[in-house]
């Protein structure tokens, strides 16, 4: 009887050891990837698809909660919008911005409503729905930033200075450097 118990205990230990070995084997790839993730990335390599931070939700302009400076008289005359943001935000006509503009009016105007370019930095509001990707050109003279929302893209020219005769555009002229 005593020998039988000893054998049974040994078998149980062997089974547990086997389970541990199997678990280690299954977790091995993850530990390798994790080690690579922590130590082997190039901080200057931004290639890849980047998207919403988990847990942020559909907070359009998170990180931009500080209000912008007040408009100049010229800005009030020329740059204010009648109504802004999106129907999904709900009717907030009772709330106004620092410049006295209702923060949202149903049926109003919002970036890209009629498929006009959203451009930067507004397009980053939509990363919750459409991530962006940095693509490095083969010539090495530029980085292309692809934005899924509205299928927009822009060149980030690896140069020290802007051209003297920049033609006004939705995306503008971007130079990038480290």
């Amino acid at each position: 009887m005593r020998v039988r118990n000893i054998v049974r205990d040994l078998v149980r230990v062997a089974k547990q050891f086997k389970q541990i070995l199997v678990a280690c084997f299954l977790l091995l790839p993850f530990s390798i990837v994790s080690a690579q993730d922590d130590s082997s990335f190039d901080p200057r390599d931004l290639s890849g698809v980047w998207g919403q931070l988990p847990g942020v939700g559909n907070n359009f302009n998170y990180g931009m909660q500080t209000p912008p400076p007040p408009l100049t008289p010229w800005g009030i005359e020329n740059l204010r919008m009648e109504s802004i943001t999106h129907p999904a935000v709900g009717d907030r006509t009772a709330t106004t911005t620092i410049n006295g503009v209702p923060t949202n009016t149903l049926g109003g105007q919002y970036p890209g409503k009629d498929c006009e370019p959203v451009a930067m930095p507004g397009n980053l509001d939509y990363v919750a729905f459409g991530p962006f990707e940095f693509v490095y050109s083969r010539s090495g003279e530029r980085i292309i930033q692809m934005l899924e929302y509205h299928r927009e893209w822009r060149n980030l020219w690896l140069a020290d200075e802007h051209p003297e005769d920049v033609y006004p555009s939705y995306m503008g002229d971007s130079i990038a450097y480290w």
């Binding site: 359009f60 302009n61 931009m64 912008p68 408009l71 800005g75 740059l79 204010r80 919008m81 802004i84 943001t85 999106h86 935000v89 106004t96 911005t97 620092i98 410049n99 503009v101 209702p102 923060t103 949202n104 919002y110 970036p111 890209g112 006009e116 370019p117 959203v118 451009a119 930067m120 930095p121 507004g122 980053l124 509001d125 802007h162 920049v166 033609y167 006004p168 555009s169 939705y170 995306m171 503008g172 002229d173 971007s174 130079i175 990038a176």
Partner: peptide, 17 residues
């Protein structure tokens, strides 16, 4: 560093100009 915008873009949701 970006300049040369055309003045027709939107800043961000909720800004109002």
């Amino acid at each position: 560093d970006t300049i040369g915008f055309n003045g027709l873009i939107q800043l961000t949701q909720g800004v109002g100009h």
